[in-house]
Design a protein around this nucleic acid. Structure first.
Lengths: 358, 358
DNA sequence: CCTGAAATTGTTATCGATATCATCTTGCCG
DNA sequence: CGGCAAGATGATATCGATAACAATTTCAGG
């Protein structure tokens, strides 16, 4: 569908209107380019009258500031990078929202990337981001490739790691202990009389938060003298709802007398519950199931799912706030650790009195 | 926790290592900066030997390319912008994944922004993106503010609108008719004998895809002589699972004899089903419910949800492909419309024979 | 051994804004 | 009315890479 012979083509050629530069706006208004540049900034000293005239011209001509030129000259890119494992996960998108909100009036934009739970992909993304010279960077977790660490160190910008408490933090940390959180859930359920604990999670170590939850489970079950936990590993993290369903089948085949199953996330817990329901088992009457993360689904589905509520939004907001602190104080603040909250949310899926049947 | 008096502070000051420039790498290797620049690109003619030496130096020194300088000089920013309504929505994140995959070896990066279903926020984001001079832009839907349209026209870059078939397309379109898709679902269910149709959706016109689905429903119900549809509007789009639950309660209060309810999305359908279950109604025995979007949850939950499956991933992949076409052919291709597929997926939630009870 | 094309490398100007410093107004106070 | 600080504006150099063209080297073929 080419039509090179149609001259009145309304489509834009490269550089059709694009060419417009600050100098041209300046000429149009009758001031210097520098004054136009100043008019675009809050603090700069330009008389209100001049700024108004400039902005009218900008509007009339349809000029759009060119940040790639600006950031080269000012050595400020005006954005911070944030890497999350997945965009399609309400926990992380809440975190992203927290970051965006915290950056609201800072003049900084958030650039999101997703790593797919892969340290290699994270490394690639870190490099891609650093090439655009972010003023700071927020990562999820504390597990990075050696090269990624080297690049970050060289970059000379503040780094915030989130959602975990890394053993060897790069800089700032905003998070909580996934292992402790899971331990709390185990102890809470044990105190309600549950004794035979099962666990469902992904197979590999890709998802470090998942592994931490798993080890928190394992450790606590043993501490309480409830023997080794009944662990099922299924699928590559992050495990899906469907895999949660498959996992509980294997688990119950192997240990039919299991009383309660903890899942690495609410999504797998939901899959497990649905699969049980489909097979004629009642949750929690025949088996209790709990998740992690307090996703929307857990308070809606039937039965409602017991879980750990994490302050996802707060993690994002505080991570961004830490970064802003670091930038304002000339990046001389300490490498602090900000602990964020979590709490057990007990719901129907582990209710010892069962749930009113539908 | 300041410690300005601790000189051996390992933390980085601004410009600690950052300073490294291409010229320094060049000096280190004993070539010109231009040669270093060439070494970073695939096509450029640099002897293998020189490139190797340069890359070793880059590694040793920890140099990271500066794209903000590069793109100013080359007038190519190396990224395309994509705006989606929400990142926490598996439909759109599948679309984003499709885009990322399609851009794989193009040398272009994807920059995501989310508009929160708001045209004003979209306008802001478009401006923020254009300031960084993307080489193309992908939007969701065809509803934009006048200023957004003006800015896009001026920008002189290819634009792809997705997920709908706008009446007044800017440039390329990759999508399908939401209205037709919903109509198909209505006809399919009507052919199974359903007669009394209800509909649940959000209130305002913010979500244009939602409104299109609604009007497709309305039109078709009337065409089939099934009277005016029983419409419940509840909550600001995108409506949540919980709102789906609240909506079905109002709907059944008002029209207790409703046989089947179509929802603007699977999420509200799920909420509606759970609420019914909780109130002792069986789906589909007492009432049938269907959704839209074929989210993971719909094939997992109990009962499984009848829905419309949309080729989300394909929308993203093709949108990016269209953009690449336009860029390669010197943006002289026609403003084409690429239709993407959808299909009805019949599941338990509308099964006329009921569903095996748990 | 010479010639010309291809391959490799270097030089210089430039992209479009902003930092920095200089200049020019304005207005207030003694 | 002089003087000076604060405010507004302008001129110029510069950020760090790449485009464009020039220069040099390499090498095949006669």
């Amino acid at each position: 569908m080419k039509n090179e012979d149609e001259p009145k083509d309304k489509r834009l050629k490269p550089g059709d209107a694009q060419k417009l530069t600050m100098a041209e706006v300046a000429k149009y208004v009758g001031v210097s380019a520098m004054t136009v540049s100043r008019a675009f900034r809050q603090d700069a000293s330009v008389s209100e009258e001049t700024r108004k005239r400039i902005m009218e011209a900008v509007d009339a001509l349809g000029y759009v500031l060119d940040l790639s030129a600006g950031s080269l000259s000012s050595r400020r890119s005006g954005f911070i990078a944030a890497l999350v494992p997945s965009i399609n996960n309400s926990n992380f998108s809440d975190t992203a929202r927290g970051m965006t909100d915290a950056l609201q009036n800072s003049g900084l934009q958030l650039l999101l990337g997703y790593t797919d739970y892969s340290a290699e992909k994270e490394e690639e993304l870190i490099e891609a981001m650093l090439r655009r010279r972010p003023e700071g960077i927020i990562l999820t977790g504390g597990s990075h490739t050696a090269r990624a660490r080297r690049m970050l160190a060289k970059a000379g910008i503040p780094v915030v790691e989130t959602w975990e408490l890394p053993e060897d933090p790069i800089n700032h940390v905003v998070g909580f202990s996934n292992s402790e959180a899971m331990a709390l859930l185990v102890r809470t359920l044990a105190s309600q009389g549950y004794r035979k604990f099962g666990y469902i999670g992904g197979t590999t170590a890709r998802d470090t938060r998942g592994s931490q939850r798993r080890s928190g489970f394992q450790k606590t079950v043993e501490e309480l003298g409830l023997g080794p936990g009944r662990m099922i590993s299924f699928g590559v993290p992050p495990i899906t709802m469907e895999q949660g369903g498959q996992a509980i089948v294997s688990l119950l085949e192997r240990w039919p007398d299991t009383e309660v199953v903890l899942c690495v996330s609410d999504l797998s817990a939901f899959g497990a519950i649905m699969e049980c329901t489909r097979r004629g088992m009642k949750v929690p009457r025949d088996i209790a199931i709990a998740g992690f993360g307090d996703y929307e689904i857990s308070s809606i589905c039937h039965p409602r799912i017991t879980t750990i509520n994490v302050d996802c939004y707060g993690i994002g907001r505080q991570a961004a706030a830490r970064l802003l602190d670091a930038l304002h104080t000339g990046e001389a603040t300490g490498d602090e650790i900000t602990l964020t909250g979590y709490k057990v949310v007990l719901r129907e899926s582990t209710d010892r009195n069962g749930v009113p049947t539908a």
